[in-house]
Amino acid sequence: MTTHTTPSTVHSTSSSASPSASPSAATRDTRPVGRGRRSLLVLTGLLACAIPTVFTVTITGMLVTGTDSDHRFHQLTGQGLILCALWLLPILVLLRAGWQGRRPSTAAGLAHLVLMTAGAGCALAAQGGGAPVLMAMIGIPGALLWASLPLRPRLRVPVQVDPLLAPVALAASAVLLPFAVDQVALQNASTTGYHAENPHYFDMAWIAITLAAHALLAALLPAARALAVGFAPAMVVLGSAGLALGESTPWSLFVLACGALAGAASAVVRRQAARN
């Protein structure tokens, strides 16, 4: 349907679409995707999603059936559901944008990179339980996924500190990073037994560092504020699981409080962004 409107009055009832971005910007952020590129995306997407999907299904099964119930905290958090969410969601966002020929969001790109980098760092610090091999299995499909994207996310973006998210992020990092250090030490100390084969402590350190990085990036970069939306529920789940499953009460309460505050701050930030 086309519309012709007389532009004769100030309060014109014009229904002609006003462009939201300049045409040049629009052309820079989209690119036609051919069949070959999409095939490549499907292939790398399958490779990148395979391990986290298997993880998610397995861990959900363990939680439902009560298998290894003494490891339920890890199943809910580091080894399990939080890790799977932090891992799968950025991949899916990157794949969707790539399939549609759009440039993926900075938040998704940073989330994926942070996950890879944090995992690699933790694998270097705690090499037990096959963590380095796992990271190689994750890192290579991740790199292939980036290579197959028609447009890569913008990573050089302006910095603007958010006064609500910044204190929450630094407070969270003050509790998450020492926790990660402890978990790495525990993993290194686990030379025999269950955790020598199943690097749960490595996983916990991995998600702790990833979550702290998500919070800091959300606080620093306007383009990555969306990361706070995922950070808040992850912290609430982590804190609640800690309280419910016998982890340190002050630590769990603090994590829970950080999650609640991050949720509130994120809501305020999003509302302001919407007003602008």
Binding site: P163, L164, A166, P167, V168, A169, L170, A171, A172, S173, A174, L177, P178, V181, V184, A185, A212
Partner: peptide
């Protein structure tokens, strides 16, 4: 600003101290 700055500095100090201690 004071609350935000105070929390940020405390958080930064504790984070860095914990990392250095590691």
């Amino acid at each position: 600003v004071a609350t935000s700055l105070g929390t940020c500095l405390a958080g930064a100090y504790l984070t860095l101290f914990a990392l250095l201690q590691a």
